[in-house]
Design a protein around this nucleic acid. Structure first.
Lengths: 214, 214
DNA sequence: AGTCGCGTCGACCGATCGGTCGGTCCAACG
DNA sequence: CGTTGGACCGACCGATCGGTCGACGCGACT
């Protein structure tokens, strides 16, 4: 097989995934040509087809890699234990860190949610994507239900709360120039990321409306 | 000019905008060909260029029409007066109604935010889009600041709160099959829309963490 | 030495892309 | 009546799309 583990070089496959991830984030699935991906990587276009059988599978591989990393990170974080509130806040902090450290993630994630119909065929890569999504959302939903059962969380509709949490955490890091114009600073600026984490926690703790001391 | 107001027919221009809006929502800017737009409308592709000089301008017109409608609706809603809390909740209710009644809106809106670089040239249509966005977000920001000043809202970072509100209101209606899978029902199902409005209001009122009676 | 297979490549394919061009039809206007 | 101008069309353009093909360089193994 000749796959020495003491090999510093990054495999062509990973370099293709890196380039495709950045491009898909910037211009979306249909907006990216394989020629451009190959050119960024420094390969001929034909070489891409040696590592991925076609464009949909490359796209699925990009999405799958992101979701797998998020899933792995969240599983590790959740396994650390603690009260539901602690775990939820750690969950969100962890997710924000991941999105902030990898500026492509939020956009690729949201964009992939918008591509309903396409990506036909039950390819293994495609199934992996759906499995990871189900795993992540399942864990989050279970955490919400546990916290509501124990009285730690306000009683709310779990599915709608899940949608709210995804929107509130993922969207800002996908908003690009829009977010930059609103914040006055880059969304990925470390100080702004820190503030985002704080504001997110406060929002979840207190909402927006001031507490009337009744 | 021959533009009789007693004309029932919908102008070709509007029918083109309708078709393009639905297609852009489904497959994004790069994923839609002008041939397909023309075919849906029932015109020859050449005719599209009679109403819009090129593809970017058609896209800008689609986005501009949506933003103008949202802006108009929000202005009307905000002008009705009331306390900051009342105006904010009416603002969000109104926005949800608009997004729920026009399933293309949320997706076109979010997708357009993701297209940073493209759409070059300072065309009038392009400027209209940015003006409407600035107007909407400006009004919302002013409302937040007013409410915080009067103590009706918790003191929070206004720009981050704006991003949170956009994410929490717009994203669910753009989430498509993802949202459907989580909710178990169509996101645009009237009952689900009603529930969304309720959960949104509760989230903003109380956050998620239960109140400890301290 | 031979050869096997992985990774890479350039040339090429049919299809489709956004956009142009010249022309037709027809109602409005003088 | 003739003319004008808006709406529309088919044919066509060069460029690019995703994808295929056959070949070549080159380690690894026998």
């Amino acid at each position: 097989m000749t796959l020495p583990s003491w090999n510093n070089e990054i495999s062509s496959r990973d370099r293709i995934l890196d380039a495709a991830e950045a491009l898909f984030a910037k211009r979306g699935y249909a907006g990216v040509g394989l020629r451009e991906v190959a050119e960024v990587v420094g390969l001929g276009k034909s070489s891409l087809f040696h590592h991925f059988k076609n464009k949909p599978q490359l796209y699925a591989a990009v999405c799958g890699r992101i979701l797998r990393r998020i899933e792995e990170s969240l599983m590790r974080t959740l396994a650390a234990g603690g009260s539901p509130v602690e775990r939820l806040e750690r969950w969100l902090d962890d997710l924000v860190n991941l999105l902030a450290d990898n500026p492509s993630y939020a956009r690729v994630l949201l964009r992939s949610l918008f591509e309903d119909d396409d990506l036909a065929g039950e390819m293994p890569e495609e199934m992996e994507v759906e499995r990871a999504i189900a795993s992540i959302m399942g864990s989050a939903g279970a955490l919400l239900r546990e916290g509501m059962g124990s009285g730690a969380f306000r009683a709310a509709n779990v599915p709608h709360m899940l949608l709210s949490l995804v929107g509130i955490t993922v969207f800002p890091f996908a908003s690009g120039e829009f977010g930059q114009e609103i914040l006055g600073k880059d969304v990925f600026d470390p100080a702004e990321v820190q503030r985002r984490k704080h504001e997110l926690r406060e929002f979840i703790r207190f909402g927006l409306i001031a507490r009337s001391e009744a």
